[in-house]
């Protein structure tokens, strides 16, 4: 299973390296969202500083949606879905590989957006001990839930519009917990953030388990 996961993750990252969709489209989109929020919420009134955690995770969520859509769009073209079924790869390995590739791209994006909120919003990322595990757990949850719903929508003609409708409500707990953990970390009282980190870990574990158990069926029916 892990061999298959490494094979799929390597292929997906190679696809990204060749197409540069995340670099040329998703990352600029994410930065644009941050900049538009900065224009919309006057930085002089102190609103930006208060809502930085929420804006950061909204930007991550929207960008993550694009990354998940892209990750499963490439599996729906020109007979690739059949080739994947015929490949003999372990579906659980395919799931873990997709999750890993999406997570790597999201983590890179989160670093970029982190720099963005420091420069544009003046955020102070001093509580690294809480910020880093929050990012890791939220990213895993986002990638795992995204992969479950990504393969569910992959075989449908309306997948581009259906996926956000399915996925965004499901990811609401990630948005709330990650935002709350970031508020604690950036506000200088990280103690309260650990409970929210726990919720993120549970969410990530739940969707990773769900994906491992159901990806084979979803792949066959896609």
């Amino acid at each position: 299973m892990l061999r298959d996961a490494a094979l799929v993750a390597g292929k997906d990252l190679r696809l990204e390296a060749r197409s540069r969709v995340a670099l040329n489209q998703v990352a600029p989109f994410a930065l644009l969202v941050l900049m538009l929020f900065a224009f919309a919420l006057d930085p002089d009134r102190g609103i930006l500083a208060r809502v930085t955690p929420g804006l950061y995770w909204v930007a991550v969520l929207f960008s993550g949606l694009l990354a998940v859509q892209r990750a499963f769009a490439v599996e729906s073209t020109d007979g690739v879905a059949d080739a994947l079924r015929l490949s003999g790869l372990d579906p659980a390995g395919v799931f873990l590989g997709k999750v890993a590739a999406v997570a790597v791209q999201l983590l890179a994006l989160e670093v970029l957006l982190g720099l963005g909120v420091v420069v544009l919003y003046g955020a102070d990322p001093s509580s690294v001990a809480l910020l880093v595990p929050t990012c890791l757990a939220a990213t895993l949850g986002l990638a795992a839930a995204g992969s479950v719903y990504g393969i569910l929508a992959a075989g449908l003609r309306v997948r581009e519009t259906l996926l956000p409708l399915l996925l965004l409500p499901v990811l609401a707990p990630v948005l709330i917990a990650a935002t709350s953990a970031f508020e604690s970390a950036l506000g200088g009282f990280p103690g309260e953030g650990w409970r929210w980190l726990g919720l993120l870990v549970v969410f990530a574990a739940l969707y990773t388990g769900l994906g491992l158990a159901t990806f084979g069926v979803l792949l066959e029916d896609g």
Partner: peptide
């Protein structure tokens, strides 16, 4: 089983070598 269908079953953005190596190793 090797199935040659109407569709290619290949990733457009990967090279020929990448595609062949990936599907070969998968099997």
């Amino acid at each position: 089983v090797g199935l040659l269908a109407h569709a290619t079953g290949l990733y457009d953005e990967l090279t020929v070598a990448d595609n062949v190596a990936f599907w070969a190793r998968a099997a």
